[in-house]
Write a protein that binds this DNA or RNA. Sequence first.
DNA 1: GTATAATCCATTGTATACGAAGAATACAAT
DNA 2: ATTGTATTCTTCGTATACAATGGATTATAC
Lengths: 208, 208
Amino acid sequence: MSRVANSGYLEMKVYNEIKDLIIQGELKPGELIIQDQIAKRIGVSRTPLRRAFADLERDYLVVTTPQGLTVRTFSEDFLISIWEVRSVLEGLACRLSSRVIDKATVIYLRTLFTIAYDEWVKTGDLEAYRKADVMFHTKLVDIAQNPILKNHFNYSHVLTIAFSKGILRSAHETYPEHMAILDALEHNDEDKSEQLMLEHLRKTIPKI
Amino acid sequence: MSRVANSGYLEMKVYNEIKDLIIQGELKPGELIIQDQIAKRIGVSRTPLRRAFADLERDYLVVTTPQGLTVRTFSEDFLISIWEVRSVLEGLACRLSSRVIDKATVIYLRTLFTIAYDEWVKTGDLEAYRKADVMFHTKLVDIAQNPILKNHFNYSHVLTIAFSKGILRSAHETYPEHMAILDALEHNDEDKSEQLMLEHLRKTIPKI
DNA sequence: GTATAATCCATTGTATACGAAGAATACAAT
DNA sequence: ATTGTATTCTTCGTATACAATGGATTATAC
């Protein structure tokens, strides 16, 4: 996912495999990670592990305790911390995007949301809406064209995807908010778009 | 500075030494980093290098190009990107701090700034004010008690310190802003403190 | 039986060794 | 002279080997 580039095949493989082990719950929160065990399990030597661990730690999946490297426990407070940070980062993404976004993209995103929303209303299927949501937020970060922002976003994005409880607020509630943000973006209203995105995300925090 | 914890002595040493080499300009922006050379220069094997490189890349000091790992070139755009992100992060730090900061800390910070400001007015020496400034921003991030925020802040803070052109706006201009932020913090005004900090920092961006 | 000492073993951090891939260089052919 | 090909040489990623550290465990003294 958000691996740094300068790495061999195995380092990437190891990063992803351990990430999956954690997300799948095969490595349990708080569990001590022993290099040899993981190395054998994945079938590589310990050498590529160390770099992968550095990345896993950067992405908040593991943490170094006095006992050693352990799988991170995701307390509610921790998830809230992530959301607080993501909120301001995506608020910034909105502001920066509003300066450069083109009308076609706005229309595209609006259509995407509307179709998905209608589908949910009709069939009760939320999947399309959830996808549109992820796409929306990811896309804005791309459009913003701020490499630092993108990195910081990615760092914690892995997590929110992995550990969020899915949709936290009803589409009925968030759809109008998305539309309002898109309107602000369309009018290149920096302040308003940032403000709306912030409020949009912060409303979710109490639901965590 | 912001090393991850699970690392041996040499990995930390290597991280710091390469960081210094880059900041001191002995490794020039754009320069290709060859593992063997650096390893010999620092006097370690290539093994601990790899992990240090992962961290250096995370901290934006080096970057992987098609040619290999190179020292990052810090364009103006890049510095602006950092400032944009730092702005919202510290804005958030302010908001979170405003919830929990105690009066004593506010008074402490206010005094610190005022003494430093007066000294500048009297003697023309900016050093104390600059220090107070760094301390102020760092402290708020600590008070905020959001571990993610602190990490993200650290990631880019190394850089701004290393490569900023020093004080970018006159103390005459920023002193009242600092006071206003402290006032908002004292009154536990979340919105206002965040807003003021954001404006405070964003006013600096055009000067980059 | 408890406390302390000594020993082992697990685990880690680091160095060295090895193999592969790509770039650079030398040489040959037209 | 230029292009094509073969052969080094560099550099990297990975595996293995080794040394040190710290914790557990057993042994020993009282």
